[in-house]
């Protein structure tokens, strides 16, 4: 699922950055197109922030490419034209900063925790991680290589729960969609993802998730075509109105 969206988004990024380069303003006011690569779990909140930012800065256009943080980090180090990177994990951010592509220090703007996503109404009566080990409970987890999978491993270790999932999904949205389609009974996803899908799923909180908190760093990139816009967007994400949007989506303040 992600491969095609990433490719599509990359095409968009290529087109958008072309436009951005042409319409770059000479003054300090942001304008043109700001291309933002952001973690999949930021899809809903950043789409909203992008609209708010455009309204606050007329003439500015924000283009997003949402995907797995590790994929995005690789695209950036491979030279994908982008102005801002918002990662779901400091490790993937480090790949970008180590490559010398970050303009300044990354700033942690949000934190996220895991919840157990279950079908609406919680038909299997799942109340904690231990309930996921039952033989008639099918569970989807994120693969260990992606941030939500790393957090999952930490949470399961903290709870001393061993469970065998039916599938290890390539990102958090894919794990969630297996619950929404009814193919699994539960998935460990971020609280924000469960909240965004509140029409189809309930999010069951569990205490061990506090042991596996995910930090979300953001940074402007050096190789972007719109540095003014990038700085302005990062500043906007750190602002009070943006914090309210993020909190509404279920993120915690760092």
């Amino acid at each position: 699922m992600k491969r095609s969206t990433v490719l599509g988004a990359l095409a968009l990024v290529l087109v958008a950055s072309g436009c951005g380069g042409q319409s770059r303003p000479s003054s300090a006011a942001p304008g043109g197109t700001v291309t933002v690569l952001a973690a999949a779990s930021l899809t809903e909140s950043f789409t909203q922030l992008g609209k708010d930012f455009e309204r606050a800065n007329p003439g500015t256009h924000v283009t997003f490419s949402f995907g797995g943080s590790s994929t995005l980090a690789q695209q950036i180090t491979a030279g994908a034209p982008a102005d801002v990177f918002a990662s779901a994990s400091p490790a993937n951010m480090k790949q970008v900063t180590d490559a010398g592509l970050a303009a300044g220090e990354p700033y942690t703007f949000a934190r996220n925790q895991l919840v157990i996503a279950v079908a609406k109404g919680n038909p299997k009566r799942i109340t904690g991680l231990a309930d996921l080990t039952g033989p008639d409970v099918k569970v989807a987890l994120c693969a260990r290589a992606v941030p939500c999978g790393a957090a999952t491993t930490k949470a399961l270790d903290a709870a001393a729960v061993k469970l065998t999932p039916v599938t290890l999904e390539q990102d958090v949205k894919a794990a969630l969609s297996k619950v929404r389609l009814g193919e699994v009974d539960a998935a460990l996803v971020y609280r924000t993802d469960a909240r965004a899908a509140a029409a189809d799923v309930d999010g069951v909180e569990f205490p061990e998730s506090a042991k596996a908190v995910n930090d979300y760093p953001i940074v402007a990139l050096t190789k972007g075509s719109n540095p003014t816009g990038a700085t302005a967007f990062v500043a906007y994400v750190r602002s009070q109105p943006a914090a309210a949007v993020l909190a509404g989506a279920g993120f915690q303040r760092p």
Partner: peptide, 27 residues
Amino acid sequence: GATITFAGNFPGRTQTMPLAVYLALES
């Protein structure tokens, strides 16, 4: 694409080489 969507990804059961490649690329 069809495999990871329909069969999921679990080593030894549904993780074929292309899926393993894709996930290895993540890390």
